[in-house]
Each structure stands twice: as C-alpha cells, then as structure tokens.
Computed example of a mutant assay.
Amino acid sequence: MNWLKVSGSLLVAGALASCGGGGDVAGDTDEFFTNPSEIKWSTPAGSSSCKAGGGAGGETLVTIVGGTPPFRIHNPSPDSIGLDRTEVTGKDPVFKITTLGGCMEGVGVLVLDYHSRSAVVEVTVEEAAAEEDAAAE
C-alpha cells in the first residue's frame, strides 16, 4: 500500500514539473529578451545637459520576456544610470531605468536569467543636433 502512495506521488510530481508546476512566476522558455532592448534619450542642443550631472530624469520601464527567473540586473555605469532593483522575479518581471546625468553612447545594462542566459538593454543619452532644435521652433 505504501508503494502505491509513493508511486502516485511521484506521478503527480512529474506531471506538475513537466507543465511548469502551475506557479505564479514567469515560465522557462527558449526566448529571452527585454522590451525595449534599446533606449535613446536626447537633451536640448547647446545646453549643458551632457555635462556631468545634466540630462538627468529620463525614465523607462523595461519588461523581461521569457527566460527563467530570478533575473539579475547589472548596471555597468551606476554614476549615469539608475536601476530601481538588481533582481526581478514574478509573473510580470519589470524594472525601471533612470538617467542620472551626462551623455553616454551605447551603455549596456545586462540582464541574466537563472541559467545565465543574457539580454542587454542598450542606453544612449545624446545631445540633439542644433538643426533639429531649429526645425522644432
């Protein structure tokens, strides 16, 4: 009789494991990326926004799609980019990127899933061209 209980429990555990267990965390999938994967902010031309401390305040929410939680987020430039968290889990994994000042070209915020698969959010802050500002007036 105990043998039947043990084998029944193993069958149930195997069935749950094969379908993801029905939990409330993001599923394990082959696809793994962020949305958006690239963020570009512009500061006014001729302003001092690209100097240290200027150009701060741009914010974007980034959603992690696919992969296996927990997700670790690595900030390569903490003086220029702010993150609201360094680890994300749950059904809808989202984190916020904020500019802290200065211009930068193609700084990559690295997102790693449980299996160390990676996705990168490329952040760029640049000064708008003078002709763009003149056309806007």
Rank of each mutant, 00 (worst) to 15 (best):
E127L: 12
M1V: 09
A128P: 01
R85G: 10
T86K: 10
M104V: 02
A130L: 08
S77W: 06
A56L: 06
R72E: 11
L16S: 08
D84K: 02
F33S: 08
T60P: 02
S18V: 13
G108A: 11
L61G: 14
D92Y: 08
A15S: 10
V125Y: 00
V109A: 04
M1N: 12
T89N: 11
A136T: 11
R117I: 05
A17R: 10
T89I: 07
R117L: 09
E126I: 10
A119H: 04
V12Q: 10
A128W: 04
T68Y: 01
D133R: 12
T68V: 08
V25P: 00
A119P: 02
V120T: 08
E127M: 13
L10I: 13
V109M: 05
H74Y: 11
K51G: 11
A56I: 06
F32Y: 04
G54P: 12
P44L: 10
S118C: 07
I73R: 03
E137M: 10
V6N: 09
E105R: 13
A119F: 06
P93A: 04
P69Q: 02
S7P: 00
S80Y: 08
G66M: 10
G57W: 03
E105H: 14
R117G: 03
N2H: 12
T124I: 03
D28G: 04
N35K: 14
P78T: 02
S7Y: 00
D133G: 07
D24S: 13
E31S: 08
A119R: 04
L112Y: 08
G27A: 15
C19N: 15
P78R: 05
A52K: 15
